[in-house]
């Protein structure tokens, strides 16, 4: 009888803690960070993503709905390196939530945790929309993503110390499966090492850095500038000598330019998911890399 009471009390206590602990509101700027936060935070976090895989993270409006979400957030998880410079600072200024301002524990920048690529030697807008702190599309290198996951797990534990052990345990599980997947992907991707690809925008630099893929051209004449037909023609001439493996573009980019270049050169155009939700079946970071590799391997003759 006494035991029963104890059990009831324990169940009640668990119920209470659970509901009061599912309290860390995470505002992820992009779907990849929403997925990572969900994986690492489990049921102790409530995650919203500001954007979807079909939206260009450079060009988001500081919408009222996003201000309302930042207002109630305990933690922002964003790419950083100025990817969100056109909208996030406005959300932060309007929301009146000091917890999530730059420099606070409630503000997490993925790009800040790793060594970045593409840091320009000089800053000049004639070179296009370049980022002073380097290329911000950091999630496409699974090695760097692993470092970011560790830092994010630490941040969760730091913000919510009562659940620190829970976060650490989840991170250990994630880390182990991620390392296994990394080995698997590396073996699978061997035929892609040294491959030459044309990109739409320079959002694949970290992926290429991981696999040793070479970017031989961009559909955008300058980073961030819309595609022009004149540039496509120039690109065609340049690619004739040594045709690349494929032209890749993402779910948030218009397929028109890639298909046009594919038509006039015969080089296959491949749509890649880029982030979680960017293709059917891409429901987390694991399936993101599975699907990306699958689609690239399919075009190898």
């Amino acid at each position: 009888m006494r035991l029963n009471y104890r059990i009831i009390l324990l169940v009640l206590a668990m119920g209470l803690t659970k509901s009061s602990l599912a309290a860390l509101n995470v505002f992820a700027c992009e779907p990849e960070w929403a997925s990572l936060a969900e994986t690492l935070g489990g049921d102790r976090v409530k995650v919203v993503s500001a954007t979807t895989a079909y939206q260009d993270p450079h060009r988001i409006e500081a919408r009222p709905s996003l201000i309302a979400k930042v207002r109630r957030a305990d933690l922002l998880v964003c790419s950083g390196a100025e990817l969100e410079i056109g909208w996030l600072p406005m959300l932060q200024r309007q929301a009146g939530n000091p917890k999530v301002l730059r420099g606070q524990p409630g503000y997490f920048e993925a790009a800040d945790q790793i060594e970045r690529l593409g840091i320009p030697d000089s800053l000049d807008r004639s070179m296009g929309d370049i980022h002073a702190s380097g290329n911000p599309h950091v999630h496409l290198d699974p090695r760097r993503l692993s470092t970011i996951a560790t830092a994010l797990s630490d941040r969760l534990a730091n913000l919510d110390p009562t659940n620190a052990d829970y976060y650490r345990k989840r991170h250990d599980e994630f880390s182990q499966t991620w390392e296994e997947a990394l080995q698997r992907w590396k073996t699978r991707a061997l035929p892609l090492v040294g491959a030459r690809l044309v990109v739409h925008h320079q959002d694949w630099e970290y992926f290429f850095d991981w696999l040793g893929i070479i970017r031989v051209g961009s559909l955008e004449p300058k980073p961030g500038l819309p595609v022009s037909s004149g540039h496509i023609v120039k690109l065609k001439k340049r690619l004739q000598q040594e045709p690349p493996l494929a032209i890749i573009y993402t779910a948030y980019q218009s397929p028109r330019a890639a298909k046009r270049l594919s038509q006039i050169t015969g080089i296959p155009a491949v749509e890649l998911p880029y982030t979680v939700g960017g293709a059917e079946g891409v429901v987390d970071l694991f399936t993101l890399f599975d699907e990306t590799l699958k689609r690239l391997l399919e075009v190898i003759p």
């Binding site: 009222p64 709905s65 201000i67 309302a68 207002r71 109630r72 309007q94 929301a95 009146g96």
Partner: peptide
């Protein structure tokens, strides 16, 4: 002086 309400819908 401005105040943003802690609601799902944006209210200022």
């Amino acid at each position: 002086i401005g105040w943003v309400a802690p609601t799902d819908i944006y209210l200022q």
